[in-house]
Design a protein around this nucleic acid. Structure first.
Lengths: 226, 226
DNA sequence: TTTTAGATTAAGAAATTGTTAAATCACACC
DNA sequence: GGTGTGATTTAACAATTTCTTAATCTAAAA
């Protein structure tokens, strides 16, 4: 199995468990990320957009259920699967967890084989068809299928040319695209438009996603900074 | 929730459990069927094509795992979810169960609240991905078999082309279908129709299901938003 | 300071879609 | 085979959105 295409995020405050689970899952080929509290978990989730999150219910600072609620509010994490780790027979947290938007739970103590079976079963069922048409740059998600851009999980609609231009820049973050290049790739070889046209489009995109992401490189062109 | 849409089959050799679970789930509105052994379970499953099967692992005559293997070999039960009931800490059967094609397991003793949460979570999760015979988008249900659309439970009749178009959009909610794509998939490769034909059809559908569901993505196409 | 590339703004052009009504088509029914 | 009903398509025009330009302003480089 191509487990290496899946990103897993493990969130637990106990270093031992983090390491133990991380080790077991890495051995199966998964890309594993970890976080040791709810807050960090949320920010890592937003950054990596994992396919599946394994989250401890009981944690200091921010408990798992609150974290999941926040994650579920983020549009770009809509498809992410969430598995709770709960202490055995904490039935209440199971129910609350499902209500918060979890997809499964696993009771502690955790046996790696069980965890792996479960993770695989979830991924198998849920991600049969994965999009692969999504580009993520920092807190910006560009979904080519839905033709929408998410900034910090907030949906933004861009007109065709603006979307195309942003998509181009996002395809190679930090690379400077010359005006020449942009013309060819966005407008096409044959179309002739004035010089200021690009500027205006860049401006409109900046209006929508903020001024910090697209940098001007004077005399050369533009780049999307990461 | 419209639990009455869902058929559940419970397979267990203990009469008590059968009754207890059946009662709990019926109270939630599900259509409940029961069987007291693996063989009977298989034949009832084939007959009713339930959405979800709850199956005891340990049973006389035919154990749950063999039964699940046989069920999974049946094409029409491909989409059916399967939940195992296992005695606590029987880790081995968990793994074997997943390998046989189960989607989840629940440890005995069973608490109804937990069971119900779990069942609902499974149905919710898998229905999202289900591109099978029935598609649900918000308050819209599209039944491809009966060739009808329900809006807030009220039946709406759509002519062939309109239905085909709506079905296409509903097959991948939120995905933007280009006009190109729509032409090919609804009208066919060879048919040539005018540009406004799609618009008119979209308009007619909107007249019937409301203006909010089908969004126009200018310059690209249409999508059914969720 | 001067020069130059880019930023900004508003307005009109261009492109795309919405809407309506009427024409055409398909098919069941007599 | 005709007739009628509803489905489908076309055509004309309206409405809307997007794109481009042009004019003016700003800031960085020379």
């Amino acid at each position: 199995m191509d487990n290496d295409k899946y990103k897993l995020l493990i969130v637990d405050d106990e270093e031992d468990i983090l390491e133990f689970l991380g080790y077991s899952l890495k051995r199966e080929g998964f890309q594993v990320f970890t976080a040791s509290n709810g807050k960090d978990g949320i920010s890592k989730a937003k950054k990596e957009i994992p396919h599946l999150i394994i989250m401890d219910v009981m944690m200091p600072e921010m408990d798992g259920i609150s974290a999941v609620e926040e994650i579920r509010n983020n549009k770009s994490l809509d498809e992410t699967l969430i598995v709770f780790l709960t202490a055995r027979s904490e039935d209440y947290s199971q129910i609350a967890g499902f209500e918060a938007g979890a997809d499964d739970y696993i009771a502690k103590p955790i046996k790696p084989k069980v965890l792996i079976s479960r993770v695989k079963a979830l991924l198998r069922r849920s991600l049969k068809k994965d999009s692969g048409k999504i580009v993520v740059i920092g807190n910006l998600v560009i979904d080519q299928e839905k033709f929408e851009v998410l900034l910090d999980g907030k949906k933004i609609i861009l007109p065709k040319k603006e979307f195309k231009l942003l998509k181009l820049l996002a395809a190679s973050p930090n690379k400077v695209f010359t005006r020449e290049e942009i013309f060819v790739k966005v407008w096409g070889d044959d179309v002739i438009v004035g010089d200021r046209t690009i500027d205006v489009h860049v401006r409109k995109i900046r209006e929508k996603i903020g001024d910090n992401l697209i940098k001007t490189v004077k005399g050369i062109g533009y780049k999307l900074e990461n």
